[in-house]
Design a protein around this nucleic acid. Structure first.
Lengths: 168, 168
DNA sequence: TAGCAGTATGAAACTTGATTTAAATCACTA
DNA sequence: TAGTGATTTAAATCAAGTTTCATACTGCTA
């Protein structure tokens, strides 16, 4: 992947600038903890949960409490820099909002998460909401199944049972 | 709504017969608790959570423990008689599987849940999964926004903040 | 650049949804 | 209808997330 202009070593990552703007706008404070968490989230990129992020921060020497991790993730979600998903789990999954909105395919065997974007889905949403006189703000389409590496040789009955128990 | 043939007073509801078959097949036992829970679920019909169901059972005199409610809901989900959703919440929502698969519109102001089914969505899922070499078992599309009664006169910024914090 | 007001943090307690335990009870088979 | 294994219950436990409150710090302002 090509790096965008804002990524060069001499410039601040654009997510920092954006988060700072967000904090200033709401008269919130720019603290070391908040910036460390933001950096960790964007270094990771892919899907993660709050506890794993906290463990990772701790392992890397940053002494930041669980409460602050949760509080800061909330702020980042408010700010639009981080997205919160369920992906079938009982706990929240997060991802850095580096690109545009997309939906997810979740492999229930290995946990892999694939992303996709389909403009026709956005059209479909519009049409459904028109029919029902509903004003949409957000949608989430999750498809649960087996990825290319996991499909084959797996007891379908067992898979169906597991899928039924997901929070979907 | 017309009542189906199986609903007449002299016949057992078809969900009872089905649950009994499921239990027998797996050499599980048909207990009074399980049957009470099944009946309560199908009397209710609409979306509910485990704690509310437990409270309702208790209120109606049935002395069934929380653990049994949770365990039986799991069985009913396995059996396909009950569906489990998240609907943006951190806890599970259930519904009696009286009709075919459908997806949901969730009003984030009043909590109302509308259902819809679109064959073109099923087609779309097929096409996405073909592209990604993914074997789908289940999908869930949730649209979050404001229903006809709630839209208008609401601060969009506040709504966006609330939506971002959902487990979607 | 010191002081201040108010926000942020951390540790620990708490909450909520859900699961597990152990002992008593019950459903089914023979 | 006795035996055995599944089921139930209350209570303990667990996991994710939130709240509390005393202390520390940020961002002004003078």
């Amino acid at each position: 992947m090509l790096s965008s202009p804002g990524d060069s070593a001499s410039m601040r990552p654009r997510e920092e600038t954006r988060f700072e703007g967000f904090l200033r706008e709401r008269k919130l404070k720019l603290t070391g903890e908040r910036m460390s968490i933001l950096a960790a989230v964007f270094q990771r990129g892919s899907h993660f949960d709050a506890e794993a992020l906290h463990a990772e921060l701790k392992a890397s020497g940053a002494d930041i409490s669980r409460a602050t991790v949760y509080r800061t993730l909330d702020l980042l979600v408010q700010c639009g820099l981080v997205r919160k998903h369920s992906l079938g789990a009982t706990h929240a999954n997060y991802e850095a909002a580096q690109d545009e909105h997309h939906d997810h395919l979740v492999c229930i065997q290995c946990g892999k998460v694939l992303e996709f974007f389909r403009p026709d889905l956005e059209k479909l949403q519009e049409s459904i909401c028109n029919e029902q006189d509903f004003q949409p703000f957000h949608h989430s389409l999750q498809i649960f199944g087996l990825c290319s590496r996991c499909k084959g040789g797996i007891d379908e009955r067992e898979i169906r049972g597991r899928v039924a128990q997901l929070h979907t």
